[in-house]
């Protein structure tokens, strides 16, 4: 009956946030969400498979802290210029994850942390091209992407 429970749940939440938490709005929102998820089912997108729910808070915390840290770092670079030895540059990193949801989550993480931007992904070589604002040590960035994010994402999305 509900092909995409996560989608239905978030649609109901969004409806309630926009129009107020009342029982009547809850019924209306549930109706809209159920029909919308049926409509979504006819498009047949890939279903995200989240295997380890308990690791999600860990990922959110890591990303939250990284966003604060890189905000400060990028603000410093923009105001006072780069430190000696820092330059911007392209960086190609081979990835192991294949799951589409995990890839898009990784793209969102890397782009919304200031200082790194996801340019393009090649599905044949499974390589991603990044652009990094303060590239001092390439291995450090590769290590950050592979060990800090990719490992966790591979565990969460089977």
């Amino acid at each position: 009956m509900l092909p995409y429970p996560l989608l239905t749940l978030s649609l109901i939440l969004m409806w309630l946030l926009l129009s107020g938490f009342t029982p009547g709005q809850f019924i209306l929102g549930t109706l809209v969400a159920v029909f919308a998820s049926w409509a979504m089912a006819s498009l047949r997108p890939d279903k995200p498979k989240i295997r380890k729910w308990h690791l999600l808070p860990k990922l959110v915390t890591i990303v939250f802290l990284d966003i604060i840290r890189s905000n400060l770092a990028v603000a410093y670079v923009l105001l006072f210029g780069r430190k000696r030895g820092q330059r911007s540059g392209f960086l190609a990193i081979p990835l192991e994850i294949e799951d589409r949801t995990a890839l898009s989550v990784l793209a969102i993480i890397l782009t919304s942390t200031p200082g790194s931007a996801w340019l393009e992904y090649d599905p044949h070589d499974r390589t991603v091209l990044l652009h990094v604002l303060d590239l001092q040590n390439e291995d450090e960035w590769i290590d950050l992407v592979k060990n800090r994010y990719e490992k966790l994402l591979m565990e969460i999305f089977a």
Binding site: I67, N71, V74, L78, S88, T111, S112, P114, H131, L133
Partner: peptide, 16 residues
Amino acid sequence: PTFYERIHAPTLGTSW
């Protein structure tokens, strides 16, 4: 100076 460096700047506004 370059376009690829400039795409990093707006992410400050869109994150924090």
